[in-house]
Each structure stands twice: as structure tokens, then as C-alpha cells.
Design a binder for these strands. Structure first.
Lengths: 200, 200
DNA sequence: CCCGCTTCCAACTGAATGGTTGGAAACAAC
DNA sequence: GTTGTTTCCAACCATTCAGTTGGAAGCGGG
């Protein structure tokens, strides 16, 4: 077979998603990633520098895929509620992503590729504002943060779920209920004149 | 000085809070904990078994303190909103706790001292139901989960905050706004006839 | 003051782990 | 088919880490 370095890189990134999602940056084992990818671990250092930089690449790739996969459509608060539901669905389908995001927050503090991701976030906020012009920018920011936090947490923190609802992991009815809670919360964003007052 | 094993244990637990909160279970270093406590690390194994059990003790103690520190008072949804605000304040004052909770969710999956904590959660839900009898048990559970998730996340995940609001860490005005968002969300729980319908 | 018991620790160990290296094999150009 | 370059890997290395051990020092009881 001919050289196919892109394939090798992709194999490593795929294995990295699994490993980092499961164990985080400190807990991940470079040897395991290489073995799962069927590639020598030296390749990781050659292609990506070191473990931490590699983690950054993994996270950046997954985040990029996710943000493109869930666009905002339509207008009105229901469009945002619909968006929130689809964010939730995406997280359910790709639970690694929420875990990666949380590992990043805990282990790194400062986000990787900060500028790039910040720009993307501003873009999302712009789209929310375009869909619901009544909101202030700050309200839209808080709304987006709330959506992402709740959707991510429901995937990444099964412990809270088990504790507060007694739910078993993978309970579909539970997931549907949680989804409904989130979309309902989003819809309240427009019906609350007191909200704006609270944000003086 | 006389023997004071309780003091030694407390020193270790205190140092454990710091270390585990900062680095998680996998990232924490037993040597660092012992050094910070001014105690030999062998004491950890003698008193607590191993690193993971010690982590469990640390988390259980902190959680116990926290749950007692923030009770539910009064009745009506405003009492719950007030409770949510105080949960938020407590998390701000003790940011280690949220991080410990998140580390647990990511690294352990299954909660430590599950039965005990589950019972305490049920008790909290009971108190919410007592304060707001119109809620179903499931609604109350979702409400509590939402409160805890949002309050914890705002402390444990500065990366999301930085990304979506561009806030610098430690911005007091930002914190106050976030607090208002959470209490406002709580208050919507009673005004939404559609919520019950959504939870068929 | 001595004896049994507990608390404490310096030093050690065995196993992983992140990262490196020297060279073999695949490839392209000529 | 020879040369130069790039991809790839087995084996290696230095370090770090969780956990152990053997014994010193503090303690209460007689």
C-alpha cells in the first residue's frame, strides 16, 4: 500500500477521541492510543508534538465537526428551542464531545484554539440575535451558555443524573424528558419581562 | 505534642481537597498531598486505604458540608429560587466543590457513597415538593438537577464562560448576572402549564 | 522506668509512562 | 537500479508515581 499519512493521522485522532474522552488528558495513555490506532506511538510525537498538543488537535477537530453539524434555522424563540433540542440530540449521539469539553475545562482552564472558537461563538450569538431580535446580546450569550451547559452536562455527568433522578444510564425516556426540560427553559427566555429587569 | 490523629486526618483531607480539585483523581499526586499537609504519605494509606478511597473520603466530606450549609427555607417557587441563589453563592465561595463533583462524574462514572447521597437528594426533592406542592416529583427532580448543574458548571467550567460570554475569570458582575439567570430559570418552573404537557 | 502499643516517617521498590532514537522499509526521481 | 527522502517502528531511556517496609519516637499503664 502507498503512503497515506492523512489516514494515519485520522486513525490517531479517532483513537485519541476515544481515549481522551474516556480518561482525560492526564489519564490518557499514549501507548493505548497508538495501539488502538494500530500505529506506532512515535507518530503522535512526529505529527502532533506532544500529548497536550495532540489533545488540543483532537478537541479542536471534534468541536469543529459539531458546530457545523448543528446550525440555527428559522426565527423566533421556537427556532432557538429547536436548536437547543438538536444540540442535545447531537450530544446524545456523540457523548465523547461533552466529556472532552469538560476535561478541557477541568484540566486546562484556558480553552484550546481560544480565538478561533470565540469567533465561532460570537457568530452563534449573532444568529440567535438575528432569530430573536428582542434579546440583548448579553441575554443571548447567557441563553447559549445555558443551552450548551445543560446539554453537555446531561451527557458528561451521569453521576448527577443518577443522584438527583435515580435514572439508570441510557434510559431513553429519561433523556427525552431532559430534552423537553431544556427546550422549555429556552422558550421561557422571551416570556419573561422580569428577566431583562434582573440583568440591570 | 500529644498524638492527634484526627488533626493529621483533617490535614490530609484538607490538602486532598486542594489537590484533587486542581488535578482530579488521575492527575493528583499523593506526594504533593502529603507534602502540603506536612505529613508522610504513608499516613494516607494507613488511614484511607488507597488513593481512590481517599478521593472518596475527600469528596464525601465536602459534599456533606455543602449540603448542610445550604438548606431550603420557606415555601413557594421563590423559596426555591432563593435556594438556587444560595447554592450558587456557596459554589462561588467554595469552587473546589464543583470541580470535585465534575471530576467524579468524568473519572468515576458511578458516584461515591451513592446510596447515602441518593437518600439526601430524595430528601431535597421532598423539601422542594413541600415548598411547591404543585410540582410533580419528576418536575422537582429535574428542577434540582438543573439548579445544581448550572451552579456547578459556572464554577467548574471557566472555558465555556470564556467562550460564550468572553468573560474574564473572577468578573463579579458576570457572576451576578449568571446568578440572576439561574434564579429566573427556577421561577419559570411554576408559570409553565406547557411544561407538564411536555413531560408526558 | 520499662513494656506493649500506636503514630509517624525516610528510604525503598516495582511498575508505568511520556518521550526518543537508530535504523529498516516504502516510495519518487532520475 | 541507485540515490535521497519520508514514513514507520521496535527497543530503549529517564523519570515519576502509587504503594510498602522497617524501624524510630511518642504514649499510657503499671
Amino acid at each position: 500500500m502507498a503512503w497515506d499519512t492523512e489516514r494515519t493521522k485520522r486513525l490517531l485522532l479517532d483513537a485519541g477521541v476515544e481515549e481522551f474522552s474516556a480518561h482525560g488528558l492526564a489519564g490518557a495513555r499514549v501507548d493505548r492510543i497508538a495501539a488502538a490506532a494500530g500505529v506506532n506511538k512515535e507518530r503522535i510525537y512526529q505529527y502532533f508534538g506532544n500529548k497536550e498538543q495532540f489533545f488540543g488537535e483532537v478537541l479542536t477537530r471534534e468541536l469543529g465537526i459539531a458546530i457545523d453539524a448543528v446550525p440555527i434555522h428559522g426565527s423566533g424563540i421556537d427556532a432557538i428551542a429547536d436548536y437547543a433540542g438538536r444540540v442535545f440530540d447531537y450530544q446524545c449521539a456523540h457523548p465523547e464531545l461533552a466529556r472532552l469539553t469538560f476535561w478541557e475545562g477541568l484540566e486546562l482552564g484556558d480553552p484550546v484554539a481560544k480565538e478561533h472558537r470565540r469567533a465561532r461563538s460570537v457568530d452563534k450569538v449573532d444568529r440567535i440575535l438575528a432569530a430573536v431580535p428582542e434579546l440583548t446580546r448579553e441575554e443571548a450569550e447567557e441563553l447559549l451558555l445555558t443551552i450548551v451547559t445543560l446539554a453537555d452536562a446531561s451527557q458528561a455527568l451521569p453521576n448527577l443524573d443518577a443522584l438527583y433522578t435515580g435514572a439508570l444510564p441510557g434510559d431513553a425516556a429519561r433523556l427525552a424528558r431532559r430534552r423537553a426540560v431544556i427546550t422549555t427553559i429556552v422558550r421561557t427566555w422571551e416570556r419573561e419581562p422580569s428577566r431583562a429587569a434582573a440583568l440591570d
